[in-house]
């Protein structure tokens, strides 16, 4: 039963991926100006020779549906076009950077989920206590502060006042000695960017956990657990939390695109060599194939993440697991 669900979701995901490719294709043609110019990445500035080769490669002299077919066929083979700015295949540029972005996103997400739910659970024990108020304050601030501004504030603080953590780049060649030294150095560099990105979601998850715990704690099955003689620690940790995390899984899945978006800004602030800085650089250079490639690739990341959360949710909630 679960296998069928997985297969159905997989097919649906593939359709979504194709849809994103079609959107990219349409964007190139909807943009003002000659598509060849757009692909060359220099509005009106490319040489006639380059433009001719683009027209040939993309079949731009043929009907639109043929062009779309050419585009999709190339993408299926992993060809997302050529960056004329970097003079390299877009897919290579992306694969080179995607690891750094995923590292940043998952560290931030892990931090937000672990610390956020913990704070939320503590806050739910005393709905009017200090931790509860702290959760409220953090969540309002985390929601209202522009993420890049938080990052810059941290840079100002950590650049001169408390020089504990590096404020730029992913590693320092002089300090990354050996694989272990490299990992440690990357982790050291990761602290501030991951914190900046994570704090926004930590704020949301702590508030959500608190609300969801309070709701669950008032439910009849918690009363049953207490009537059985379950200890308070287990009432919270086993009976309540299992139910209270369900909305967190949903939200984290739905927000994944937002987290990737946040990563773009955070990477730019901290010079983290991921897809975000690549996107920023290609926008400055008007390198459309690269920026469209990044849009496509990050959509694929979101689709995969949604697939995973969907399956995770089915495992966590027997009511859904059985339903379909």
């Amino acid at each position: 039963m679960l296998l069928w669900t997985v297969i159905r979701r997989l097919i649906y995901s593939v359709i979504l991926v194709v849809a994103v490719l079609v959107l990219n294709f349409l964007l190139i043609h909807l943009a003002p100006g000659d598509p060849a110019d757009v692909i060359a990445g220099e509005m009106g500035g490319a040489t006639e020779e380059v433009l001719a080769s683009i027209r040939k490669a993309y079949g731009l002299d043929q009907p639109l549906y043929v062009q779309l077919w050419v585009y999709l066929k190339a993408a299926a083979g992993g060809d997302l076009g050529q960056s004329f700015f970097y003079n390299a295949p877009v897919i290579d540029l992306i694969l080179d950077r995607v690891g750094a972005t995923l590292l940043l996103v998952f560290t931030a997400l892990g931090f937000a989920i672990v610390v956020g739910t913990t704070l939320g659970v503590i806050a739910s024990r005393k709905p009017t206590g200090i931790v509860s108020n702290l959760v409220t304050v953090i969540s309002v601030i985390g929601y209202s502060a522009p993420i890049f501004w938080t990052g810059i504030m941290l840079i100002i603080v950590f650049a001169s006042l408390i020089p504990l953590f590096p404020i730029s780049n992913m590693y320092d060649v002089t300090k990354s000695v050996g694989p272990f030294g490299y990992a440690l150095d990357v982790a050291h560099h990761l602290v501030l960017p991951a914190f900046t990105l994570g704090i926004v979601y930590l704020a949301q998850y702590s508030r959500l956990t608190r609300a969801s715990m309070l709701e669950v704690l008032g439910s009849d099955y918690i009363r049953t657990a207490r009537a059985k003689g379950v200890s308070e620690r287990k009432v919270y940790g086993r009976h309540a939390l299992r139910n209270a995390v369900l909305p967190i899984i949903t939200i984290a899945g739905l927000q994944f695109g937002g987290i990737v978006s946040g990563a773009v800004l955070v990477e730019t602030v901290f010079n983290w060599p991921g897809l975000g800085t690549l996107a920023f650089d290609s926008i400055l250079a008007r390198d459309y194939p690269t920026i469209l490639g990044i849009l496509f690739f990050s959509a694929v990341i979101v689709i995969v993440a949604n697939l995973i959360t969907d399956l995770l949710y089915r495992v966590a909630d027997p009511r859904i697991r059985m339903a379909k």
């Binding site: 009849d220 049953t224 657990a225 009976h239 299992r242 139910n243 966590a316 909630d317």
Partner: peptide, 13 residues
């Protein structure tokens, strides 16, 4: 209790 529909924890057998 009165409410058998909601008195059992939905995530455990």
């Amino acid at each position: 209790f009165q409410e058998p529909m909601s008195s059992l924890n939905p995530v455990f057998t």
